[in-house]
């Protein structure tokens, strides 16, 4: 068998096991495994969910990139694809699902609504972008994004995963709290973000706030 160049050049591998042993870094191997099996949460909110299904279906076949295993339960999912308008009524459920996902976890905002509120931003029941609550890794523009755009966004996420280092990522370090933990918002007279209680109280006390 010819030398296929599997080994990194700077390591001296005995002749008899060349092409049998490959040398790489733990990071690359680990990230290769993770980026090739991103399991999305099966979670459709609105119009974008239909394009998400189309991206999974016959013509576009997202399985080519290792992302076809949609998991209906958050406990088995790696990535939350927020596909559609986030409404105030729905938000507590989304936060609960996100908090139930095990780390490492990623959030992709698909479409204009999830990124910023989109055409419905002015609506009284619409959250102007999921990034007000969750840490978004990739934004995909479009209303709705075409399946090609969705796949391009997924590839961007893979590039992001490639750059992570097992030594530095938070979820393998002892005692580090998840800084992205989001407390459940409450549905009151309007959506109450409990992290902002003091601020809301102060603004509501002024006349223009009410």
């Amino acid at each position: 068998m010819e030398n296929e160049g599997l080994n990194l050049p700077n390591y001296n591998i005995p002749e008899d096991i060349q092409n049998v042993v490959a040398i790489t870094t733990i990071d690359r191997l680990y990230n290769w495994g993770r980026r090739s099996s991103v399991w999305p949460l099966m979670f459709g909110l609105a119009c974008c969910a239909i394009e998400m299904i189309a991206a999974q279906a016959s013509r576009y076949d997202m399985a080519r990139f290792g992302m076809e295993v949609m998991r209906p339960t958050p406990r088995q999912a790696d990535m939350m694809l927020v596909s559609g308008t986030v409404t105030k009524k729905m938000l507590p459920s989304i936060i609960r699902l996100y908090n139930q996902m095990p780390e490492p976890k990623y959030v992709v905002a698909m479409g204009a609504c999830a990124s910023s509120g989109g055409p419905f931003k002015e609506g009284y029941n619409v959250v102007a972008g999921i990034d007000k609550f969750l840490p978004v890794d990739v934004y995909i523009p479009g209303c709705p994004p075409t399946p090609q755009a969705l796949i391009a966004g997924m590839i961007k996420l893979q590039e992001k995963i490639d750059k992570q280092s097992i030594k530095k990522v938070r979820w393998y370090q002892k005692g580090k709290q998840d800084p992205n933990y989001v407390p459940m918002p409450i549905l009151g007279p309007d959506l109450i973000d409990v992290r902002r209680n003091a601020e809301i109280k102060q603004a509501a006390a002024t006349k223009e706030g009410a």
Partner: peptide
């Protein structure tokens, strides 16, 4: 995108 009644105490 919020609106609360006057003197609302969350």
């Amino acid at each position: 995108n919020l609106k609360f009644p006057e003197n609302f105490d969350p």
